Deep mutational scan, measured.
Amino acid sequence: MDEEYDVIVLGTGLTECILSGIMSVNGKKVLHMDRNPYYGGESSSITPLEELYKRFQLLEGPPESMGRGRDWNVDLIPKFLMANGQLVKMLLYTEVTRYLDFKVVEGSFVYKGGKIYKVPSTETEALASNLMGMFEKRRFRKFLVFVANFDENDPKTFEGVDPQTTSMRDVYRKFDLGQDVIDFTGHALALYRTDDYLDQPCLETVNRIKLYSESLARYGKSPYLYPLYGLGELPQGFARLSAIYGGTYMLNKPVDDIIMENGKVVGVKSEGEVARCKQLICDPSYIPDRVRKAGQVIRIICILSHPIKNTNDANSCQIIIPQNQVNRKSDIYVCMISYAHNVAAQGKYIAIASTTVETTDPEKEVEPALELLEPIDQKFVAISDLYEPIDDGCESQVFCSCSYDATTHFETTCNDIKDIYKRMAGTAFDFENMKRKQNDVFGEAEQ
Rank of each mutant, 00 (worst) to 15 (best):
Y5R: 06
E16A: 09
T166N: 00
G27T: 14
A351S: 04
D289M: 07
V357G: 07
E367G: 12
D416C: 10
S384N: 04
L216W: 10
R169H: 05
E261D: 05
V119L: 10
N310T: 06
T94R: 06
L177R: 01
L280M: 00
T311A: 09
D419C: 05
N252R: 11
G220D: 04
G27V: 03
V25E: 12
I376N: 00
Y93L: 01
Y245R: 15
W72A: 03
N130G: 13
K264Y: 14
K210L: 11
V74S: 02
D256R: 02
G67D: 12
D391G: 08
F399N: 02
F380V: 13
G247Q: 15
S213K: 12
D385I: 15
V25F: 14
P227Q: 01
R240W: 11
Y53N: 08
I77D: 05
D313A: 05
R98S: 04
V181A: 09
P223L: 03
V266R: 03
K293W: 14
S285N: 09
V145G: 08
I300C: 01
A406Y: 14
K329N: 06
L372C: 03
T194S: 06
C17Q: 11
E4C: 13
L198Q: 09
G232N: 15
C202W: 06
Q296P: 04
Q447K: 00
A126R: 04
G67T: 12
L241F: 00
I8A: 08
Y5C: 02
K210Y: 12
Q438H: 05
V171L: 09
E106K: 03
T124A: 09
K329T: 07
V104D: 14
D2L: 01
A445V: 11
S270A: 12
C400I: 10
E271T: 02
D289A: 11
E446Y: 15
G237C: 09
K364S: 05
V110K: 11
E159K: 13
E367Q: 09
L14N: 03
P254R: 05
K221I: 14
K118L: 01
T15Y: 14
L81Q: 00
R218P: 07
L14Q: 08
G263Y: 06
M134L: 15
A294T: 06
S330W: 05
N342K: 09
I332T: 04
R138P: 09
Q378H: 06
E273W: 15
K137T: 11
L251Q: 07
I300W: 12
N26F: 14
P389I: 15
D419H: 12
E4K: 04
L49I: 14
G247W: 01
T427G: 04
R299W: 00
K221Y: 15
G40S: 03
Q279C: 12
N310E: 09
I287F: 03
A243W: 02
G443V: 07
T360S: 03
